[in-house]
Amino acid sequence: MANDGPTPTERFLRGVIPENPVYRQLLGMCPTLAVTGNMKAAMTMSGAVLFVLFCANVITSLIRGLLKPHLRILVFTLTIATFVTIADRFLAAYLYRMSKELGAYIPLIIVNCIIICRCEVCASRQSVPHAAADAVGQSLGFALALASIATVRELLGAGSWFGVQLFWAKGTAAEQYRWSIMAQPPGAFITLGLLLGAAVWIGNSWEKRRKTRAAVREAGEAD
């Protein structure tokens, strides 16, 4: 199989913003809403996704020559499930409290559309460096998306960031101003909805600016 298609660097850069898994592809919504109550949980989840995506992409890329259409999805699923089990056990052994807080959302990485999608679109068609760069890029994009939502929710809902209390501390009079709905399901939905709208708006205005600049350049060349 020829290595045509995006280069590893392109794969990496695309995954961060242009093809951001949450804001552009709208994949992996379940963990995005569930673990973004605070930054620590969000970053632990991103780390787990990075590990699983990287290993699954690399393994899939190594065996891509042997994959036949019928059993493709079966092989992807088996690989992903194994690495998710390893990640889950690792967290239970060395980060026990965080593992309990994340609960069932770590095993849910198995059905996270991001990973199956990347295996299908990139790893099963290109070589290992491409697959690895793609995995790192997409995970970075995922981490940025989670961080944006978790920052909003933790700052508004608890007044802290990464567990460090910045304002609205417990026991002070200011505690009543905490917007505690942000720490609960409705806050998650509304935050993601508004941030998604913001992302679409930013994307549209960039597109418009790019097109005007291209049109101006063309008009300049035509003269």
Binding site: I63, K68, H70, L71, L74, V75
Partner: peptide
């Protein structure tokens, strides 16, 4: 195909 799945 089966041998690949079994090996994995």
């Amino acid at each position: 195909q089966a041998w690949l799945v079994l090996t994995l």
